[in-house]
Design a protein around this nucleic acid. Sequence first.
DNA 1: CGGTGATACTTCAACATTCAAAGCAAAATA
DNA 2: TATTTTGCTTTGAATGTTGAAGTATCACCG
Lengths: 166, 166
Amino acid sequence: MTQKHPDRVDESLIALRRILRATELYARDLAQAAGVTPAQLRVLQIVGEKKDPTAKTLANQMGVSQATVTALVDKLVARGLVSRQPSAQDRRQTNITLTTQGEDVLEEAPDALQQRYVRAFADLADWEQAQLVSSLERVAAMLNVDSLDAAPVLATGELRTSKKAY
Amino acid sequence: MTQKHPDRVDESLIALRRILRATELYARDLAQAAGVTPAQLRVLQIVGEKKDPTAKTLANQMGVSQATVTALVDKLVARGLVSRQPSAQDRRQTNITLTTQGEDVLEEAPDALQQRYVRAFADLADWEQAQLVSSLERVAAMLNVDSLDAAPVLATGELRTSKKAY
DNA sequence: CGGTGATACTTCAACATTCAAAGCAAAATA
DNA sequence: TATTTTGCTTTGAATGTTGAAGTATCACCG
């Protein structure tokens, strides 16, 4: 098991950290542009992505406690971006739904990855796209020992002729 | 510029989100195991990575304000993990340095990526490693429009026969 | 049925993070 | 030297975060 190119671990780690850092910093800018905090934007994104999730689902997806979700949803309700809908099937549960206003906010600040990534990806050659997908999925598998889930946020067909060009 | 495989954008975005999510969640666990908060651990990591950075450098690297850095460093000083060293060249500046205790903490919780990634990477075939590096650097370039920097945190030669196996 | 325990959510108290604004000291510039 | 800029800290306020305790509902089992 001789290591022929020991630098490669470093190189890939550096690249990964740059990806992480760029995404995180940019996500904050997007949230600020949308007029909400990063944590609140994450809630909006998950609510938009999943179908009217319960508070529990939100907590699991975000990796925070239910108490935190309650506090965040309180803020978003106060701003009129989401509303609480008592579940019909299980009256203990509360479904969080986007208001029209909340949808507008999401519309303006869709996703840090989307914004920066989609266009460049589309310009790649076919084989390059295939290789990228394969590599990213491999890395995700390496990191994601106990995989949960993640779903596409938007239909990526049309890239929204956005007002705020990027 | 016809898109032959529209799914690929989604697939790669999903993989990227899984990477982001796994890393973030795991970073919290690591911080907690080390007995510090995630933000404090990030400070420790940057201090260990760069050579006795100034508060300004820390703020830039973390993407937060100087006031925030002051608060975080206060906490770490109170815990005896770092110390402030007035700069000799410019007396306005303060260099943050790890104490022996701070080094120990870093030693125990080196890096979320390192822990999960390095071993799996080492097991890949040579060509797979090369492809991964190439793909990750491409993605980083796509995201990192205004690149700053990132450096390897540890010499990865030996993987530390760790007490807390992972 | 009725009781018991688990589940979903909220409230509360405490602490961490974060920032803008104001202040201070030192350096750079004019 | 006078002025401006830079690096850092302080202060005050908002947000994020959690564990523990409380409430309501569900699920199960006798």
